[in-house]
Design a protein around this nucleic acid. Sequence first.
DNA 1: GTGCTTGTTGGCCA
DNA 2: GTGGCCAACAAGCA
Length: 275
Amino acid sequence: MPELAEAEFYRKRWDLAACGAIVTSVLTHDRAGVFRGTDPASVRRHLTQARLQSSQAAAKQMMFHFSGDSWLGLHLGMSGELRSEPPDYVPQKHDHLVLVTPKHALVFTDPRMFGRVQFHHDPAPPAWWTEIAPAILSPSFTLAAVALFLRRRARTPIKAVLLMQERFPGIGNWMADEILWRAAIHPQRRAGSLQPTEIRTLWCECRRVARLALRMIAGHGEVLPPDLNTHIPRTWLFHHRWADGGRCPKTHQPLLRAAVGGRTTCWCPARQPFR
DNA sequence: GTGCTTGTTGGCCA
DNA sequence: GTGGCCAACAAGCA
């Protein structure tokens, strides 16, 4: 599930539970899995007795900054989750990293292990964090930048283009479908075939979906919704795209599903004709 | 058993 | 070199 808004939801969950707290112990699963390229022993050594100072989410990733110049980066892959449990929590099969603080245990769990733990020990944040593309809601995400990118990917289906993190950081499968459905663009259209007005609509809907999803999924200020997705309205494609026999919330016509760009894609043929 | 799965990467090929 | 496609990664679920 983790796309941009879910990453912010999970970041906030750890942050609200334990920002300012000292990590008293670190438990890790030592098989490669989510630690590929990262040494679990180094994570344990540096984070024990470190204080969680701040955190950020960008694209589908989260960064937790600890005292002692330690940076913990997490990517949730397909099935990752962050939870906050009581401090005496006993790790379960798919828990890969647990940071125990006096009042909470911060748990990173991921059954499919497409997620990733990254660690960096230095005063400056690591390149793999600072090199994430500018956020969709930042001033750098301009109409011109999107139009240029679409021209360069002219022969690729627009659905696959929206999944490219170097220009659309944090957009995943469901957000891409939601954006194309709102913009009334068929997912199989070649990026180079979009007219200027369509590109502008697409750009607007990218920003709108990102803004609304962040607000509805990750909540406002210091308050976190109890569950992901509880505040997404039924008027979004989101709730209908997986249901067999699902109907478009706008046209009430049947939805279609097929693989586009290697990913299952849902669209409303009545609203998004291929032209 | 089969065939899916909200992500990313590397290899192959045009 | 660039762009586009696809399999692989691993585990769970229907």
